[in-house]
């Protein structure tokens, strides 16, 4: 195996494009090193991006944010402006693994690992985040929900890497939230997860919403029917019931060691309902 720690994005892309055999980008490494240890992944080349200083920063991107691909979830929690703007995304990132994991894990890595159960991904999808991709042919921006094609598979092409996650400017009276269900209180992979981002008008009526679900399909789902259940309502009990129903209907999970199909279908609705209440309260400035 070869280990490279380039100092610029340009060099990283060059190395990626030129590498032979299997190549892995090393951000936090909290998934990659586990895969390497189990023998599941035996890369010929590892490209460590943590020496690329712009990728280690959280920058303002207009009125939004550009979160460098090497920024750990702990660093996100320590950025007051980001926490204020996108608490759902920050909290989702802070659910990944333990304190130790959060000291390393990145949301770009979480995305590129392409697990359907990745905690930060539904939150990013709900928030309308985009991945800034850099490759031999330049930059492109892709909506986060379009990145994963299936478990472990992304749309990234040879030589490409995610440089940053772009979070948009948050509209007024907008709140986001992410909840997941795990059997313990910490340290587990989500059995199901739900992200909700909604905008209210001055009267408290929902004018826009994005609802996403994790761990209930091969990829994280953006559920437009669930969003429709909220839009035009005051996010009251009836709307929340409709939201939960739409989420359970959209779920097409599997049975596995972490949960049963029927449990996941049920819990998807419960989580979306609870997340929507938090998002609504945030939009109302209650929390």
């Amino acid at each position: 195996m070869q280990y490279h720690a380039p100092a610029t994005v340009k060099d990283a892309v060059k190395l990626l494009a030129a590498s032979k055999g299997s190549t892995q980008v090393l951000a936090g490494g909290t998934d990659l090193l586990v895969r390497m240890r189990s023998g599941f992944s035996e890369p010929d080349t590892v490209i460590d991006i943590k020496r690329i200083s712009p990728m280690c920063k959280i920058a303002r991107d207009g009125k939004g944010f550009a979160i460098g691909a090497a920024v750990s979830s702990a660093e996100m929690s320590e950025n007051p402006a980001l926490v204020k703007a996108w608490p759902g995304v920050v909290e989702a990132a802070a659910l990944i693994g333990s304190t130790q994991i959060q000291g390393r894990a990145t949301i770009a890595g979480n995305l590129c690992n392409a697990s359907p159960a990745a905690d930060s991904v539904p939150a990013m999808v709900a928030a309308g985040a985009k991945a800034l991709i850099r490759g031999p042919k330049g930059k492109r921006k892709v909506a986060v929900e379009k990145i994963c094609k299936g478990p472990g598979k992304t749309v990234l092409k040879k030589g490409e890497l995610v440089e940053a996650i772009l979070l948009p400017a948050k509209p007024a009276r907008t709140g986001d939230a992410y909840l997941r269900f795990i059997p313990r209180t910490e340290m587990d992979i989500a059995v199901a997860g739900a992200g909700v981002c909604l905008t209210l008008d001055a009267k408290g009526v929902c004018t826009a919403a994005r609802v996403s679900l994790g761990a209930i399909a091969p990829t994280v789902l953006l559920v437009s029917k669930a969003a429709k259940a909220l839009i035009g309502t005051k996010v009251d009990d009836a709307a929340l019931d409709a939201l939960a129903k739409a989420c359970s209907a959209a779920a097409r999970p599997i049975d596995d060691k972490r949960g049963t199909k029927e449990f996941r279908i049920h819990i998807a609705g419960v989580l979306a309902r609870r997340a929507a209440i938090i998002a609504r309260d945030r939009a109302l400035g209650k929390s």
Binding site: Y3, A5, L26, G28, G29, T30, L33, V34, R37, V46, D48, K50, S72, A74, S98, T99, Q100, I101, G103, R104
Partner: peptide, 16 residues
Amino acid sequence: VVDGRLVCACLMLGAE
């Protein structure tokens, strides 16, 4: 602790 940040030494390469 690496540069002030708590981490698992098993999830970091020596090279890093």
